[in-house]
Computed example of a mutant assay.
Amino acid sequence: MGSAVSAAVVAGESLGGSLLDPKSLLATFGPIGVFVVVFAETGLLIGFFLPGDSLLFTAGVLAATGAGSAVHVSLPAVLVAAALGAVTGAQTGFLIGRRGGGALLARSGNRYLHEGIARGSVLLTRYGYGKAVVLARFVPVVRTVLNPLVGVAGMPAGQFARWQVLGGLLWTAGVTAAGYLLGASVPDVDTYLLPIIAVVVLLSLSPLLVEVVRSRRAKRERA
C-alpha cells in the first residue's frame, strides 16, 4: 500500500511539473498537451496559472529544431491543436459566464483572478467588446477571465464568436510562429530555452504590469 501511495505521489508531482514546464509537457504529451493547456487556460478559471504563451513559443522553437533533436513536435499539429484549444476554450468560458458565471467570479478568492477581472474591465471600458476580446488573448490571466466576464455582461454570442476566433488564431499562430522563426534562425537555440522562456513570460506580463502602474498612478492623482 505504501509503495502504491508513493508511486501516486511521484506521478502527481511529475504531472504537475509537466504542466508547468513547457518542454517537459511537449515531450510527454505533444500536441495533445498543447490543446489541453490552451483549452484550460482560456476556458476554465482554474487554468489561469498555466503557461500558454511559453508553451506555444517553446512548441514553435522545438518544431524548428528538426527531428534529430531530443524533443520534436510537428508545427502543423501544434498550430491545429492550439487553435482548437483556444477557440473551444474561449467558447466554454463564455458559456460559463452566460449561465451564471457572475456568482462564480464573485466567489473566487484568488487575488490574481481578481486582478485579471479588474484589468479585463479596463479593456472593456477602453476598447469595447470586440477589441477587448482580441487583446485579452495576449495578456495572461486576463485571457482566462475575460471570456466569462463578457458572457456575464451580455455580449451577443455571434459577435463574441467572431472576435474570439480572430483573437485565438492571432494569438496561437503569432506566438508559435515567433518561436519557430527563432528556432529556425538561431543554431542550437533549444539549449537556451529556459532564459528565453523567462523573457517571453516577462513580455507577456508587461501589459498587465503597465495597467497596474497606471491604476496606482491614477489613484495617487485622485488622492
Rank of each mutant, 00 (worst) to 15 (best):
M1R: 15
S3K: 14
A7T: 07
A7D: 05
A8P: 02
A8M: 08
G16T: 05
S18G: 15
S24R: 15
L25F: 01
L25N: 13
L26P: 13
T28K: 12
F29E: 00
I32L: 15
V34G: 12
V34Y: 12
V36Y: 07
V38C: 14
E41S: 13
T42I: 08
L44N: 02
L44C: 04
L45F: 05
I46V: 12
F48E: 02
L50I: 00
G52P: 00
D53E: 13
S54W: 01
L55G: 03
L56H: 08
A59T: 10
G60I: 12
A63W: 01
A63K: 11
A63R: 07
A64N: 01
A64I: 04
T65A: 09
T65N: 03
G68A: 11
A70K: 11
S74T: 07
S74W: 07
L75C: 02
L75P: 09
P76E: 04
P76M: 02
A77K: 11
V78D: 02
V78G: 01
L79Y: 02
V80I: 14
A81C: 08
A81Q: 07
A83G: 08
G85A: 09
T88Y: 02
T92Y: 04
T92I: 01
G97P: 04
L104D: 01
A106M: 01
A106D: 11
S108F: 04
S108W: 02
S108K: 00
N110F: 03
N110Q: 07
L113K: 03
H114E: 13
E115N: 14
E115R: 15
G116K: 07
A118P: 10
A118Q: 14
R119P: 08
G120M: 13
S121G: 15
V122E: 13
L124D: 10
R126E: 06
R126H: 08
Y127M: 13
Y129N: 11
L135W: 12
F138L: 09
V142S: 07
V142G: 06
N147E: 01
N147Y: 00
N147Q: 08
P148Y: 03
V150P: 10
P156F: 06
P156G: 07
A157T: 14
F160L: 12
W163R: 08
Q164N: 15
L166T: 13
G167S: 03
L169M: 08
T172W: 00
V175R: 03
V175E: 05
A178K: 00
A178V: 03
L181S: 02
L181W: 08
L182Q: 02
L182C: 02
G183P: 06
A184H: 08
S185R: 12
D190E: 15
D190N: 11
D190S: 12
T191M: 05
T191E: 10
L193Q: 06
L194I: 14
P195K: 09
I196L: 15
A198P: 13
A198H: 05
V199Q: 07
V200L: 11
V201K: 09
L202M: 15
L205S: 12
L205V: 14
S206R: 04
L208E: 05
L208H: 10
V210N: 00
E211T: 09
V212K: 13
V213K: 06
V213Q: 03
R217F: 05
A218N: 07
A223I: 10
